[in-house]
């Protein structure tokens, strides 16, 4: 499965990858350090799943998600973010996300969130 990880923090991208590997998913990773970069690259990468940070310097996660949904992209999309207020979850859902994983996360939080989405 092709997975795109969007986060402005290198360490966070690394730890997300590590966690997914440890859960046992067979994934091929692509990375972007900002929503704007992800938006430019998503056509080229063509991922099946996007794991995206919420707060990023140039284009935040939710704007990125809205932009690709507007273009009809049906990629599976989840947020991996530090805050997880009810409003954020509602906004994420409305914009077309399939899950939101709160940091700090565990292997279980990924398993639980991903099962209904990628099986």
């Amino acid at each position: 499965m092709r997975v795109m990880i969007v986060d402005d923090s290198t360490s966070m991208r690394l730890i997300v990858k590590r966690t997914l590997k440890r859960v046992g998913y067979d994934m091929e990773f692509m990375e972007a350090d900002d929503g704007s970069v992800a938006y430019d690259k998503i056509g080229e990468y063509n991922p099946e799943l996007v794991l995206c940070d919420w707060n990023m310097p140039i284009m935040n996660g939710i704007d990125f998600l809205k932009a690709i949904r507007e273009e009809g992209n049906t990629v599976k999309f989840g947020f991996v973010t530090t805050e997880s207020t009810a409003e954020m979850r509602a906004a994420a859902k409305e914009a077309g996300a399939q899950f939101l994983i709160a940091k700090p996360f565990t292997e279980e939080s990924f398993e639980k969130a991903l099962r209904p989405v990628i099986g």
């Binding site: 350090d33 970069v37 919420w54 707060n55 990023m56 310097p57 140039i58 284009m59 935040n60 939710i62 704007d63 809205k66 409003e87 954020m88 906004a91 409305e94 914009a95």
Partner: peptide, 23 residues
Amino acid sequence: AQPTQNDSSKAAKKPAKPNQETS
């Protein structure tokens, strides 16, 4: 499609600091 009003989406649209754009 219901537009989502969310202040973080408003705020973070434009680059905050130009030099952050250099990857």
